[in-house]
Amino acid sequence: MFLGTVVYALINSVILALMAIGFNLTFGISGVANFAYGALYVTAAYVSWMLLNLLKLPYFLSAFISILFTTLLGALMYRFILLRVRGQALSEVIATFGIGLAILELFRYLGFVGFEYTLPVFIDQSFFILGAYVDMQRILIVIFGALLILGLWVFTHHTSLGLAFRGIAQDERTALSLGIDSDWIATLAVSFGAGLAAIAATIIIPLGSISPSEGYSVLIKALAVCIIGGLGSTGGVIVASFIIGFAERFTDSYISSHWTMIVSLAAILIVLIVKPSGLFGEQKELEERI
């Protein structure tokens, strides 16, 4: 039971990290808190479902097209809406939240509600690991999650575009003086964040089903992880995912599933009281206020 709980806690942690990493990337680079993130996650899943079930395209081609579509949607969202309000935090939040709300409620209005909206698992097998049966999809989630985080690290540390990302994140004015186009990089950051949301949806949705309310749930989880880890800090996101992921599963197993959702909310409250910028946050002005 204990080892089984550890296995599922690890999987839960990687799921949370996957859900939050795109939100964190966008905020870390462009400074935009993309509250349409959950809607983009759900959009990717619905697009995959439509390509797979209505156009009868092969599954992996459907997933690939939906990731590209969502990435493009993120870029368009930035160029045509967010660019106009960039730098005005409140306007950015209102704009992205409004876009997210519109997308999710449009799906609801169009009748995309029901249990048939689900995606198939990649490989339908289960393995006995450390005292518990684990399905292949969850094992793949851990592998994909690790590869994605590694890939993101290589991208931001060893490619010119990734270094430009970090340049903008560290000091936009200095980066501008070195010829880095901050608007273009911010477009890419929102776009890549949307793409990461789509990748997360493609891997995670086969475990459950697609519904508009999933968009709100993903946004809340991403926010919880980022607030605890520190907005903009990739290391923080990973650590926070593990804290929440393990706390949730151990609460489930050894206290009661009734309290599971309270865990992440309590963790947010404690972090906001003790360290408002999050465990690895760099918003020093918040620290100086207390």
Binding site: M1, G4, T5, Y8, N12, A132, L207, G208, S213, S217, E248, R249, D252, S253, S256, S257, H258, T260, M261
Partner: peptide
């Protein structure tokens, strides 16, 4: 076991 609305992992309950 009581699960709040929106719960998405039932592994612990099934293990129990």
């Amino acid at each position: 076991e009581a699960y709040p609305t929106g719960s998405a992992d039932f592994s612990s309950g099934l293990m129990k």
